[in-house]
């Protein structure tokens, strides 16, 4: 065997094969842990149901709607939220802490691929399991809360792309925050700050329409809203065709920005790394 550099075409094929194989393995493994996955997903349902109940209550007490959003529309928003939230579970900052502390990273550094490829492929495959398990949850929530939703074919199409866009945007930014773990073993406060910012500026807490104007303006310049508000609104809101396409473009742009940033932070971080166990 000689170490001939792979041709461009072979490189692409090798990457595709790696991604497919990893994703397939993730699907096989995670389907075995159906019950554990379900527990986890049910735990996540509490959060949107609380928001939904509170805002429906506010809507009822102020004549049926808050800022033009009715109880049925809140229901639609927060039910779709549950799928988007599942799509947004990525190999995040606390996982990076675990990976470094337990010495998992040492072995992964020996591989010819950047660990990010594994993270994206593995969690990507896992999503397939999440989506299948989500369907009964969505059906139950729909029966209980009666959402109002009439998406067009285009909206459904954009939504199907946007949830994966959200997944990638969040992967990039969580990985960037995860790089903090190379400098400190106590990143928890920083993660909390990041999560609180995301909660308020992404549409995770409330549809951004309910936020004061300056918050909405601020959110426009940050990556957060493209991971929650945009994918949800693309299905349940009344975005124009132009807004839908601009949204997908914005997601692509933020993935690229995140990647560029990660190239920089990863280089700085890996210089600090001294192996632990393995």
């Amino acid at each position: 065997m000689s170490a001939v550099p792979l041709q461009q075409e072979n490189r692409v094929r090798a990457f595709a094969e790696f991604y497919l194989a990893t994703a397939r393995a993730a699907i096989a493994v995670q389907f075995q842990y159906r019950t554990a996955n379900y527990f986890y997903m049910l735990g996540m349902v509490a959060e949107p149901v609380i928001y939904l109940v509170v805002w429906s209550s506010v809507a009822r007490s102020s004549g049926g709607a808050v800022n033009g959003i009715t109880a049925g529309e809140f229901a639609a928003y927060y039910i779709v939220w549950t799928l988007v939230r599942n799509m947004n579970v990525v190999f995040g900052a606390p996982f990076w802490e675990w990976r470094i502390r337990e010495g998992e990273l040492s072995g992964q550094l020996l591989r010819p691929l950047h660990p990010l490829h594994h993270d994206v492929a593995y969690f990507g495959g896992w999503k397939v399991v999440n989506i299948v398990l989500w369907l009964p949850i969505a059906a139950a929530l729909t029966a209980i809360f009666h959402p109002t939703v009439h998406p067009s074919a285009l909206q459904i199409g954009v939504f199907c792309v946007a949830i994966w866009g959200a997944y990638l945007v969040r992967t990039m930014f969580q990985s960037n925050v995860g790089m903090l773990n190379f400098w400190t073993t106590r990143g928890a406060a920083a993660f909390d700050l990041y999560m609180a910012t995301e909660l308020l500026l992404s549409g995770r807490l409330v549809p951004l329409k309910l936020m004061p104007g300056w918050v909405q303006t601020l959110a426009n310049f940050l990556p957060f809203k493209w991971t929650f508000y945009f994918p949800i609104e693309s299905l349940v809101g009344d975005l124009s065709t132009r807004d839908l396409l601009v949204g997908l473009g914005a997601q692509a742009l933020w993935v690229l920005i995140g990647l560029a940033l990660l190239r920089f932070t990863w280089r700085a971080a890996i210089k600090r790394f001294s192996a632990v166990g393995g």
Partner: peptide, 25 residues
Amino acid sequence: LQALIQVATGLIVISLVYSHTPRLN
């Protein structure tokens, strides 16, 4: 630090709710 973040978030949520209604239940 974590407690401060928790309190701040909670206060923001409450003020958000009460900016749209005088009474909740």
